[in-house]
Design a protein around this nucleic acid. Structure first.
Length: 296
DNA sequence: AATTCGCCCTGTCGGC
DNA sequence: TGCCGACAGGGCGAAT
């Protein structure tokens, strides 16, 4: 799913439910989802811990406890939801036969794809579900987060105060290679995935295969402007739900209705009516307008 | 040092 | 109906 806007909206919807609560126990059903610890240590270190706050770095959700940080990455299909014992469940998920979207908005019972439950008091719980199992859980000491390889690699926060044109230009300056590949790498700007990278390149009128070292100054400026724009629009619309993405309360986003490039191959460009084209870049599909986003 | 390429998974869809 | 390949919001580690 889950790029920066989806993770941030998830964080905002989850935070008020879990802040100040104590994890009574952990039911880890698929141990390999925890990438840096064995199951026993993971569960032991979390048990009895109070949740202090939540934050986000790139596409990573961080849940801060006393002396521990639980890191959640949703991969392609991960979901984190809050189960409220006072509300009724809406059962499991089912796939809508026409739209392909998973039905069942609202809280759902754990199923075979639910890999971890963090049990709070009164029967409430945080549920972690991931069909494709590409997501990951980490448990780190607070002082070890920034130096953990995953985080050490990450670039600028595009919605943070530090995302000035000067900082962006400096971070991008020495980068070579194709524009789309660089945006997907997380190494200069953190949080863009296949959807928002295509959207940002469309807005900035940059071909996905354009070599970064050949970008003109006005395209650099356009890209710096477009990145926060597409992310803020996604956040405003509560994320993009294509299949799996839900907020902590099970709600779908609506940004899929506003995408200009992603998913629109074969349809006319909303700027110039030229038919949008899909190509492979870095083993990911990229949709762009051959007229608005020339390679040369 | 910087790219590229498998690979990790399950599920859905279209073609035959 | 079924089988098979392609594809899907991502990232890591090995190979080049």
């Amino acid at each position: 799913m889950p790029e920066l806007p989806e993770v941030e909206f998830l964080r905002r919807s989850l935070d008020p439910h879990i802040k100040g609560r104590v994890i009574q126990s952990v039911d880890l059903r698929l141990a390999k989802q925890v990438r840096n610890l064995g199951a026993a240590e993971f569960c032991r270190r979390l048990t009895g811990q109070r949740i202090l706050s939540t934050s986000r770095r790139g596409k990573y959700l961080l849940i801060h406890l006393k002396g521990e940080v639980l890191v959640v990455h949703l991969g392609m299909s991960g979901q984190v939801s809050f189960w409220d014992h006072k509300k009724k469940g809406s059962g499991g998920f089912s796939v809508h036969p026409v739209t392909g979207l998973q039905r069942a908005v609202g809280q759902h019972e754990p199923d075979k794809h639910t890999h971890a439950l963090f049990l709070l008091d009164h029967g409430d719980r945080i549920q972690y579900r991931d069909i494709r199992q590409f997501g990951r859980l980490l448990l780190l000491k607070p002082t070890a987060v920034d130096s953990f390889p995953t985080f050490a690699r990450l670039g600028l926060e595009p919605l943070g105060r530090g995302f000035s044109y000067a900082a962006f230009r400096r971070a991008m300056q020495e980068k070579k290679g194709m524009a789309k590949a660089l945006l997907l790498s997380q190494s200069t700007v953190a949080g863009l995935g296949n959807i928002y990278a295509d959207e940002a390149l469309f807005r900035a009128r940059i071909h996905p295969k354009r070599r970064m070292e050949t970008l003109s100054e006005d395209r650099w400026k356009a890209l710096h402007k477009a990145i926060p724009e597409v992310l803020r629009q996604g956040l405003k619309n509560r994320g993009t739900t294509l299949m799996d993405y839900r907020s902590a309360e099970g709600a779908m986003g609506s940004n899929q209705e506003r995408l200009l490039a992603y998913g629109r191959a074969g349809l006319p460009c909303k700027r110039c009516k030229t038919v949008l084209v899909k190509i492979q870049v870095s083993q990911r599909s990229s949709v762009f307008c051959p007229a608005c986003q020339p390679l040369g």
